[in-house]
Design a protein around this nucleic acid. Structure first.
Lengths: 341, 341
DNA sequence: TTGTACGCGTTATCAT
DNA sequence: ATGATAACGCGTACAA
């Protein structure tokens, strides 16, 4: 069974291929009469539109790419859902790739996108991305929106959250509850995002005339076990700590394990705050107070912006920073229950 | 800057386009001499391969699709990661779409895949998928692997877990602990997966000469609150129940809430088992004993199988059923602690 | 509305 | 043994 082409449809409907093409894409003025003939011909022949041929002719496509390091991270899964929704609204197909922090894989994915004449992409760049990557990407003039991880190069659009403000909110909350011995746990040292979150925390402490203790600031990988381990060492060395702000919810969940092991009642004699507001945060006992960053919304906004760029929007690069908010659950107890050391 | 084509490269290297094409694809016999000339020409001109043109000519593509209902569900996110890995290994681009259980969206996605001449797809079909969908899909003769949710039509390849065996394991575990009043909570009545899990539970009871009580089997939606509500009604009417097997971990988490409300000590005077082994299962207190299905492995296997189909493997439809395993945590207590009524 | 050149790589057939 | 020629895949858009 050979493929049925647009030409076949045209023959069957006794019109030209141009007419069929116009009917398919609702362009030009076609009489209702012929339109009907064409549509029924399409139906009768079981014609399947060949997007590839159209793409070749148009030197473009209805495809966009999304690069993450780990779709397994609930934060990114949520963001992906938001973006996916938006792409679907505009009939764009979404390519997904996990870089797993490999600059190499990332480069390969982008190359593939270019070879497929994708019309745009959303990137959460791998941590060790060489500057050259961005340079060459710029040169290609393909719409690219950076998300979550800010890029030094101000030439790119960016959608993310206000990390600084987020940890400021969280720190203030802990201070309001009376805590003065507040630790910061998690994040990898060479991460910009971490620098920002750390900045919100330290600046708030300083603002309130409270010294920043370097020993109370520890890093960790983005996993529960790593968070648990970091917390263990920290609390062993500094039992005077009564509260902790975590770089991520995942880390906070790990810290929870450690607290239990140390027989520290979460929400009673230890206050804990996370960052991201992943689903798990509301499921654990006690519920984790955390900074919510509207991950789904980041995906949506990135999608909107990308679409507008594809449509030709050539305003200067935008930076969309979504405001975080503090979601108060039980992991810090209530104001009147706070029992700082 | 106009696009540089393969013809440009050919001219620059003073060879024909055929030669360039052959070099690019490592086909045919090309002397090392010319190969080098071509490669350096490609380099000098900054040529970007046009995959679209190749796809048009070949009536195929290096693209495959993945349809889920919800990427946000950790189970599917994990599976996606596994599939994504596999696809990358074979240089295949992965299209992602969320059906959100809409048969309509699902159909649109598959149509798009066909229009883009995707070379295959992995589907977790929406619950209310009309039979016609599968019929037409079969007719297209495009490789399609079903995952997680089995399809009545035995014509399709399938990769999933052994739901029946999973709940058998779980039920046996409860029986071993001495429980005789075991409930089954969750799942929607028209789900095949539920039927299978329910089957493992009932068959094991019958096998041990224990009657199946219809009143102890209740359905619920896939949410914590729904699980909590179902458990509440159940325990109110049947306080003699001492253990429950849940359709999903999410439901089990809800049941936990209810048990606390009823002052039933989980792991002491009530045993609870979930299904899926989502991350949350290890986070709650007490840890949830659950049936683990290797979600990432499902993705990998589906990818492997899909790739082989794309390569032309035309063996009869396969059903790859990954064995589940029971992950024992604390929600059933220890054997010696079991205190069935 | 239509005729038709065009986008760009592929491969079967030919040539040396 | 190596490489060239040219028809082909199929929808698009401009000139007529």
């Amino acid at each position: 069974m050979s493929t049925i082409t647009l030409a076949d449809v045209a023959a069957h409907a006794k019109v030209s291929t141009a007419t069929v093409s116009m009917v398919l894409r609702n362009r030009g003025r076609i009489s209702d009469e012929t339109r009907k003939r064409v549509l029924s011909a399409i139906d009768e022949l079981g014609y399947v539109y060949n997007q590839t041929a159209a793409n070749l002719r148009n030197r473009s496509s209805n495809q966009v790419g999304l690069l993450l390091h780990d779709i397994t991270n609930p934060f990114y899964a949520e963001m992906t859902a938001g973006l996916s929704q938006e792409m679907e609204r505009h009939q764009l197909m979404l390519f997904l790739a996990n870089s797993e922090e490999s600059a190499d894989r990332q480069q390969k994915f982008v190359d593939s996108l270019l070879q497929n004449s994708a019309s745009g992409m959303v990137l959460c760049a791998a941590r060790q991305t060489p500057t050259l990557f961005f340079e060459t990407l710029k040169r290609r003039k393909i719409p690219a929106i950076m998300v979550v991880r800010p890029v030094a190069d101000a030439h790119f659009d960016f959608v993310g959250t206000d990390n600084f403000l987020g940890t400021q909110l969280a720190t203030q909350h802990l201070l309001d509850l009376g805590h003065r011995h507040i630790a910061f746990i998690g994040g990898s040292i060479n991460s910009t995002t971490r620098a920002q979150r750390l900045g919100g925390y330290t600046s708030k402490l300083v603002e309130q005339g409270i010294g920043v203790k370097g020993e109370w600031i520890v890093d960790s990988e983005a996993s529960q076990s790593s968070g648990a381990k970091a917390a263990e060492q920290l609390l062993m060395a500094h039992p005077e700590i009564t509260a902790a702000l975590c770089y991520q919810d995942i880390v906070a969940l790990g810290v929870m394990q450690t607290l239990r092991k140390f027989n520290r009642q979460i929400g009673r004699d230890f206050a804990l705050i996370g960052f991201d507001d992943i689903t798990e945060a509301s499921l654990v006992q006690p519920g984790l107070t955390t900074v919510s960053v509207a991950s789904r919304e980041i995906g949506r906004k990135a999608g909107e912006l990308l679409y507008s760029r594809i449509q030709g929007n050539d305003e200067p690069p935008k930076r969309i920073i979504l405001p975080p908010s503090l979601v108060i659950r039980e992991s810090c107890g209530f104001a009147d229950k706070a029992t700082p050391a």
